[in-house]
């Protein structure tokens, strides 16, 4: 699994270009092309009550997007990275998924690049829908975030995101694929971390001996993951946590000063998603770090 082609949908919000720039380091590990994508929301130009369609407005938005993208393209070509511009009218989530499928990208980069204010979640509803439905690895980029830490307001800029990645594994197949993706980043990683959380659901009601057995097995698996990373030349460090999984992952990420979190994500059915949520989505929502989810 190698990142050669990225889909970069944008709404041209503040710091979007900085976020794109922070991905250019991937050139060193094989990035060849970036698809710059803008969806003009259908409601912005269509269904004018009793009026029809704002054709001129669509043309204006298309031209604006083209001019902005062409500016970005020059920065990409300076780095020797090919790029392609797509501007469409439609519904953002299904359109992004359809373009990802059509272009056969290796990574989709979504999320607001600057998140300030009192929101509890770092992720918007469109991003949540995308990460729940994407068949492709999806990076929830959070270039600049403001959050509370130890009672203080902290502003963080995530500009060197591949430096200290934390892989949070639950030993599932998507986690194994996340490991493969991590291995492909050899060359831009300073140090990688692998963690596993013995969740409350597992530890609750178990006797001590059974818990020790799980702990031992988890440590062995963590070592195995680290060994596999080391065999690719990536320095890796294991961490075992216990408790509420999303909170533990975030705690560890802060302790080790991780630069991003990588997780496998399983396609949960709709009902499960509504009532239970998924660990990976919760982490993407709650962590101030960019979160790379691998299906």
């Amino acid at each position: 699994m190698k990142i050669e082609k990225i889909l970069f949908p944008t709404k041209f919000r503040e710091l979007a270009f900085n976020s794109l720039e922070s991905l250019l380091v991937l050139k060193k590990v094989g990035l060849k092309e970036v698809v710059l994508y803008y969806v003009i929301p259908r409601e912005d130009v269509g269904f004018v009550p009793y009026g029809g369609y704002l054709k001129e407005e669509e043309e204006r938005l298309r031209e604006e997007a083209r001019i902005r993208f062409e500016d970005w393209q020059s920065a990409l070509s300076k780095q020797g990275i090919k790029s392609k511009i797509i501007v469409e009218v439609g519904d953002p989530v299904p359109n992004i998924l359809a373009v990802a499928e059509k272009e056969q990208v290796n990574l989709i980069v979504v999320g607001r690049k600057k998140r300030k204010g009192p929101e509890l979640s770092f992720v918007g509803s469109h991003t949540l829908q995308l990460i729940a439905r994407s068949k492709f690895p999806t990076l929830v980029s959070k270039y600049m975030v403001q959050f509370e830490y130890n009672g203080e307001k902290v502003t963080r800029v995530n500009d060197d995101i591949f430096k200290r990645p934390l892989l949070a594994s639950d030993w599932s197949e998507p986690s194994a694929r996340a490991l493969d993706l991590l291995k492909s980043l050899n060359g831009i990683i300073e140090k990688a971390f692998v963690c596993h959380i013995i969740g409350v659901k597992i530890s609750k009601g178990l006797d001590k001996s059974e818990l020790y057995r799980i702990e031992k097995e988890s440590k062995e698996r963590l070592e195995d993951y680290c060994t596999r990373l080391k065999s690719e030349g990536i320095v890796a460090e294991p961490h075992l946590g216990a408790g509420r999984t999303p909170l533990e992952i975030i705690r560890i990420s802060r302790e080790i000063e991780a630069s991003m979190i990588i997780m496998g994500t399983t396609g949960k059915d709709r009902l499960h998603e509504i009532f239970m949520g998924s660990t990976s989505h919760r982490v993407a929502e709650m962590s101030e770090l960019p979160t790379l989810l691998v299906p």
């Binding site: 130009v45 269509g46 269904f47 009550p49 009793y50 009026g51 029809g52 369609y53």
Partner: peptide, 12 residues
Amino acid sequence: APNFMVRSIAEE
């Protein structure tokens, strides 16, 4: 009401 909806979809 549907007239403008049809027009909008056709123009799109």
